[in-house]
Design a protein around this nucleic acid. Structure first.
Lengths: 339, 339
DNA sequence: CCGGTCGATGACAGCGTTACCACCGGGAGA
DNA sequence: TCTCCCGGTGGTAACGCTGTCATCGACCGG
């Protein structure tokens, strides 16, 4: 910076002021500084700035994995608004319990970010407490964290609506396929499962443990899960999957084993993944990119304006998109074959 | 840090040494320092460390978008190895030319990362020159950058092999659908298109401009692109898509307009996206997560060991996976209808 | 013509850490 | 016994920037 100052014939103070866009710099000095900075391709060191300002200019995000569609979309929205706000985006992932424990133990974001976004984690009270003591705003994304800043869709209501929709098509045996809990990606499992149960109760249908199965990424796991459903004494006529990615895998397993969808089994997803339309998958759409945008905006607000309500909530809408993988339930006498 | 030192009854030097894991600290002092640090939940400030060490402990990655499958997989592999190396991951994206220009103009990663990974950009000489002067190692991911560190698959050879495979099925009119150049995601477009042309030449088939169309994300664009192909006087009997995501969209457009795949048109993708198997899409698999891992490892090596060959290349294998969307070309008299 | 105000600028301390050097005691070798 | 060396430790000057304060003309109204 001293080099730039010398080249521009001003003091380092003026260089600093210019580069930060403060107004009290004459046009002439500003131009000379900018020219000098360009010639020397000088960029301010965030490290040094943050040392004195206490701001890092960085937002950290913790996600269960970086490969999933949902996280990708959230990151897209996030990076968009953060770039506009001049903030950098740092990502952490915790794909299993060990990594998750390591993150919360070390809390690497501690002094290295101005805010932390936690995406889709079903946190324990201890973990919440740990983050409460972090010293920077934490925004909970895709989950409702009572008393804390969060951005989410009404998972419970949406799942209730989805289940009602299936019920309305005449289905009485509705299975729920959730992501395996060991992924840490269990927040939406819990809420959506809850909505599913609510809708069952509402329709006076019994909740049957056997109809709720878990799967993790990979054909084998999903085939196993679907297999468990198919060999029940009273198998489901509809499957509600926690995410479209799971739904698509279920769809594939069903069809590749010759089961007609929606003729024999209806499949309902959640997300409105880009590919859902191609597969004609009925699903509950959620605006994933907007979730990212809203989370970024909220984080930015919390950083810049400490007077902001630290428990601000942003709720985004969902909507069911009926497509071709759901249809009326077969009329079927209990204990009688189909047809 | 002074607080920790006082509490542990040692000097800040000893605290610093302990927390960095240097060996010249007695066990007794080490324990006292660690206890004090824990009680005060003290974490070293990266900002301050980096100010003096010159290392930021951060690796930056620039990608065209964060939402695509390929980038997601690369980030997954990347974050895995970087976490093990104790490095943080900062992401930048440049979805259009304006953002791209802004990135190269400002070069925000300049002093704020120990290395930069550039994923799938087809850079101009000026942009290469700009990055060469960055002062930190740059790793080019998913592209072959001569004389510079890169991690990639043999796109040209793979595309040649894919085209040959289609040729071997009897196809003579083979279209190529590429990503729209305005996305900046054009590196693989160029190389794969090149391989496609090579294979055509090899088979003594003419290269026909009309058979090469571009699309960007979204049904409408792909429908347009496919439409252009279908209304040619001599339409293609096979389509080679630059990526599986494009291939799946093409597949969907074709099938939803009643065109039999592979009966009338074969479709070949590139990537082996998770969903390719479900759609029974023939594709050229590339190990995207491994690409990320290799890039992370290479970056780590370049940072830690300046003696490393700065032009080190890592080449990963691809392999064609024949599935159900490709089949023999229809025997078809020129200018005669099908049947 | 003068005091007051204001825009523009420079000097300088200090942010939290590490690298470097100095120091000190004790054991090994001469 | 006297060196020498070495593990262990403390003091302190940077690192590159920003916030604060002081300074200095220029301009304004009285």
């Amino acid at each position: 910076m001293a080099d730039v100052a010398e080249r521009a014939g001003v003091s380092v103070s003026t260089v600093s002021r210019t580069l930060r866009g403060l107004s009290t710099v004459s046009d002439e000095a500003r131009e000379r500084v900018e020219a000098a900075a360009r010639e020397l391709s000088f960029v301010i060191s965030r490290q040094a700035s943050s040392l004195v300002t206490g701001k890092t200019g960085t937002v950290a995000v913790l996600a269960p994995t970086l490969g999933s569609w949902f996280v990708g979309q959230v990151l897209r929205g996030l990076s968009e608004v953060l770039r506009d706000a001049g903030l950098d985006l740092m990502v952490y992932s915790a794909a299993d319990l060990a990594e998750r424990a390591a993150f919360f133990d070390r809390l690497p974001a501690r002094r290295n970010a101005d805010a932390l976004l936690v995406v889709s984690f079903d946190l324990t009270e201890a973990e919440f407490a740990r983050l409460d003591g972090l010293g920077v705003p934490v925004v909970y994304v895709s989950q409702h964290a009572p008393g804390r800043a969060s951005v989410y869709v009404e998972d419970v209501a949406a799942a209730r609506a989805g289940t009602r929709y299936l019920r309305g098509l005449g289905h009485r045996r509705i299975a729920f396929v959730r992501a395996s809990p060991d992924t840490g990606f269990t927040c939406s499992s819990r809420t959506r499962l809850f909505g599913y149960r609510e809708a069952l109760a509402e329709a006076q249908l019994p909740y049957d443990d056997e109809l709720v199965v878990a799967t993790s990424r990979g054909r084998r796991n999903t085939a196993e899960a679907v297999g468990r459903l198919l060999c029940l004494a009273d198998p489901p006529t509809a499957v509600f999957a926690e995410t479209d990615e799971i739904a698509m895998e279920v769809l594939w397993v069903l069809r590749s084993s010759g089961i007609d969808v929606p003729g024999r089994i209806s499949v309902l997803g959640f997300d409105d993944h880009d590919h859902a339309e191609w597969l004609d998958l009925t699903t509950i759409a959620q605006p994933a990119v907007d979730v990212g945008r809203a989370a970024g905006t909220l984080a930015h607000t919390l950083i810049d304006d400490p007077a902001t309500d630290p428990a601000r909530h942003v709720v985004l809408p969902t909507c069911l998109i009926p497509r071709g993988t759901t249809g009326p339930a077969l009329f079927q006498e209990p204990d009688a074959g189909e047809a």
